[in-house]
């Protein structure tokens, strides 16, 4: 199926336009998930250590961290799989663990999805019998968008297809909170875009809150509104994605004569990183793009290119500010 067709289908089918409103800024909305001093130990290993965080309703929250940072543990606590060792995990004010009242609104797509039956037809019947908000119409639509047949043997499919099957079931269950571990992993770009469209619609229409964990910053940077960085069981920071990038700029410059970082600093730039390869200099500075241009143009550069700033670089900066060893985190 081409992208175009998918878009048309997604747009055309529902007459009943969104009644949900997401007029309030994310920060002012009611929290859906609250982690209160949340800790989880496995024996002597601290998988999560005193994590405090709140995730607002209808937001798309990205949880980023390397292997073993505690992302999956956090998701399992939010899904009610694990009991916190200390502290609490709340969903709309209710403890999640062993609480069907909270769990009926939550669907968890684990990194390795499990299917009790070997085709989607039986699996969908299982989900339908458990989740009150299951939407058969939505399910039918999803199996048309994702190329998995209802009767196809699930155990013969690839990892990426498994994930798609799990996502079909999870989204059709219409959770109010969707938890996804490495959600976009193994999806090709077309499916990734389709998934984003569907998730965007569920957020806009249904007020679904989404929590995505990933090792890969790039996977999340164009889709999340807020990101949290986990490292060795601690939540280093939670920030609005757009705010992170604000006031940081990166540029490639060249001058006729050699210029040192000190010279740039004395010219009024707040240099965070300075690297020179021959006469070509790359800088990361805590200035807006306009400031950067104005100051550098006064120095008559031969070349001045303002480069796009990746989230990765933003994180590196944020972390170095908190004096963490960066290479260890984002290696």
């Amino acid at each position: 199926m081409t992208n175009k067709e998918t878009v048309e289908r997604l747009n055309s089918d529902r007459v009943n336009e969104s009644t949900a409103t997401i007029n309030l800024p994310v920060e002012e909305r009611e929290a859906v998930i609250v982690a209160d001093n949340l800790s989880k130990y496995f024996g002597a290993t601290k998988a999560l250590d005193k994590v405090n965080c709140r995730i607002a309703g209808a937001s798309i929250f990205g949880l980023i961290g390397s292997n073993g940072a505690g992302k999956s543990t956090f998701l399992r606590l939010a899904a009610g799989v694990y009991r916190p060792t200390e502290g609490s995990m709340f969903y709309r004010g209710q403890v999640v663990f062993d609480n069907p009242c909270a769990k009926k609104d939550i669907v968890f797509v684990a990194d390795q999805p499990y299917f009790h039956f070997d085709n989607l037809k039986k699996m969908s019947a299982l989900y339908r019998s458990l989740y009150e908000r299951w939407d058969q119409e939505l399910y039918q639509e999803l199996i048309r968008i994702f190329p998995i047949g209802e009767d196809q043997r699930l155990d013969l499919l690839s990892k990426g297809m498994h994930r798609q099957a799990a996502l079909i079931l999870a989204i059709a269950a219409k959770p109010r909170l969707l938890l996804m571990d490495e959600a976009f992993d193994g999806l090709d770009p077309v499916m990734r875009q389709n998934l984003k469209r569907i998730l965007a619609r569920q957020v806009a229409d249904d007020g679904m809150t989404t929590l995505i964990a990933s090792q890969n910053l790039r996977e999340l940077e164009d889709f999340c509104d807020h990101v949290g960085l986990l490292h060795e069981g601690g939540l280093l920071f939670v920030e609005e994605l757009d705010k992170l990038r604000l006031g940081l700029s990166k540029a490639q410059i060249a001058f006729r004569e050699d210029v040192t970082a000190e010279q740039l600093k004395s010219a009024g730039l707040e240099i965070l990183r300075f690297s020179a390869r021959g006469s070509l200099i790359e800088i990361l500075s805590r200035n807006t793009e306009a400031e950067l241009r104005t100051i550098l143009n006064q120095m008559n550069p031969l070349l001045l290119d303002v480069l796009p700033l990746t989230l990765e670089e933003v994180f590196i900066y944020e972390l170095s500010r908190k004096s963490y060893v960066v290479s260890e985190l984002l290696a």
Binding site: N11, I22, V26, A58, R197, A200, A204, F223, D225
Partner: peptide, 17 residues
């Protein structure tokens, strides 16, 4: 917000903002 977010595959909260 819904149409735009879906069309571009971006976060509805971003569109709203």
């Amino acid at each position: 917000v819904r149409q735009l977010a879906m069309e571009l595959g971006i976060n509805p909260n971003t569109v709203q903002k």
